[in-house]
């Protein structure tokens, strides 16, 4: 799965509140390679959501670096090759990172179709016809083509989350970030969302997934990160993590969730 081709390089990432009194992220170093499916697990409050949200700067880290596309996006500006100061355009980087949220965050005042074509048309200036065609194809893939003209309120949770995933895919991102995508769903709807994610992984999409679904982590992930108290305590292949955990904190965590 992983190709060894570096996509995101995260070094010593820190997120401190109150001048270091609270450390939501405390020196996290991870490399994300193209094609990786990285699953982040850990107890609640361990900083895994903060970590994920830092990757596209929905949270602003207070230290460390995130190199994406060769640019350290944690900086507001940087010196280019000619020694000129260049402002970091975060909107540009975010276009290449799709994000799926726990609470779907569909736009309630728009139809599903409009939800999907808004960003491509307004941000990337894709012709509307083309965007519509693409949206229908994607809706087909998740089996929701007939709901294109519905409003989000008319859909079930599982349907909303599937729409949220394809909405992010409309921007043709290089990496997809999932922030507990199944935590707000009824148990019987978890499967349909995980199926879409598995399909994506199979197609080679780079993914970083924060989840409590250990089955998904074991089956789909090629690397599992265990976080607690803002630190990355252990990382490895699913079999390393689940069959042969080293860190006592991880053992304790697994004994509770498995």
């Amino acid at each position: 799965m992983g190709t060894g081709d570096k996509l995101i390089e995260i070094t010593d990432l820190e997120k401190h509140y109150n001048f270091g009194a609270i450390k939501a992220l405390d020196g996290v170093t991870v490399e994300v390679n193209r094609g990786d499916v990285i699953v982040v697990i850990g107890p609640s409050g361990s900083g895994k959501s903060t970590f994920l949200r830092s990757l596209n700067l929905l949270e602003e880290p207070t230290g460390g670096a995130i190199i994406f596309d060769g640019v350290d996006i944690t900086r507001k500006k940087y010196k280019d090759a000619d020694g000129k100061w260049v402002k970091v355009n975060m909107d540009l980087h975010r276009q290449k990172m799709g994000m799926v949220f726990q609470h779907f965050n569909l736009f309630p005042h728009m139809t599903i179709m409009d939800n999907m074509i808004l960003a491509p048309v307004k941000v990337k200036n894709v012709p509307e016809e083309e965007a519509r065609k693409k949206a229908l194809e994607l809706l087909d893939r998740v089996g929701l083509r007939d709901r294109a003209d519905a409003y989000p309120i008319q859909l079930s949770g599982g349907q909303k989350q599937r729409i949220a995933i394809v909405r992010a895919l409309m921007m043709e991102p290089e990496v997809m970030l999932f922030d507990e995508p199944t935590s707000a769903l009824d148990p019987e709807m978890v499967g349909e969302v995980l199926d879409v994610m598995k399909q994506l992984a199979k197609e080679g999409m780079t993914m970083v997934v924060v989840t409590h679904e250990m089955g998904f982590a074991r089956e789909v992930g090629n690397r599992v990160l265990f976080m607690a108290e803002g630190k990355l305590l252990e990382q490895g292949t699913p079999s390393d993590i689940f069959e042969n955990p080293q860190h006592p904190r991880l053992r304790e965590f697994l004994s509770k969730v498995l």
């Binding site: 909107d91 276009q95 799709g98 994000m99 949220f101 609470h103 736009f107 307004k122 941000v123």
Partner: peptide
């Protein structure tokens, strides 16, 4: 308006202005 709306819009690459124009204001005006 729920902060998740802004987060979703920004994560799709929309600027602060586009977020206001297409996502927040249409909902807020109501």
């Amino acid at each position: 308006i729920d902060g998740g709306q802004t987060e979703a819009a920004r994560s799709l690459g929309m600027s602060q202005y586009q977020n206001m124009r297409y996502i927040i204001l249409p909902q807020a005006i109501k």
